[in-house]
Amino acid sequence: MEPIITVRNLQKSFGAHKVLTDINVDIHSREVVVVIGPSGSGKSTFLRCLNLLEQPQEGEIRIEGISLLSKDTKINDIRKDVGMVFQQFNLFPHKKVIENIMLAPVQVRKWPEEQARRKALELLQKVGLSEKAEAYPASLSGGQAQRVAIARALAMEPKIMLFDEPTSALDPEMVGEVLAVMKDLAREGMTMVVVTHEMGFAREVGDRVIFMEQGLIVEEGKPEQLFGSPSHERTREFLSKVL
């Protein structure tokens, strides 16, 4: 089957600093890919290239066969189908929870208000926050805010979800509730690319784990293989520090 995401020879620099040297990866529909690696390995940058929040200098990214870097591609159209969850939640503080979720379906998908509201309430129930619909983001805990952010991304009915260290800014006792929502999503068959330091999640939910360092994919494989018997010295070293 044709992969839903294809990345070839991806290169990205910030000035003289090369962040992604040469990334090649295929991600299939319904697959959960977890990207791990030390800080500064380029894993977040790689993820942000997948919806062009970062513009790569070289290479090719295809989503459902459409080249992101082609001049004819309207990136907004691609982004409608690629949801993203950020480390800092990035909820819109001037809008209520329900308005945060409804904004894009109404303005981008052009859904009628009623349909968007129904969808939003359904998603809030799914992430266990129905009672927070009329609250403002400032009144939410970190874990609640991140669950709303996930609901907001899901309201666009994306085909792919990108998670950029979704639990790194949370107090430890709130990590579980966010991971639980992500596990549900994985179980439902969502295609997910997750950058995280949660090795438990990677092991339990990931179909494939990618270990990145210095802008390169050092090693990838099934979680049991990568965590159980990593084939590279660098992977072993990294895992011995984090596990």
């Binding site: 907004n76 159209d77 949801g83 950020f86 819109f92 981008v108």
Partner: peptide, 8 residues
């Protein structure tokens, strides 16, 4: 970024 990531 959040707004753009939603397709705006």
């Amino acid at each position: 970024e959040a707004a753009l990531s939603l397709g705006m």
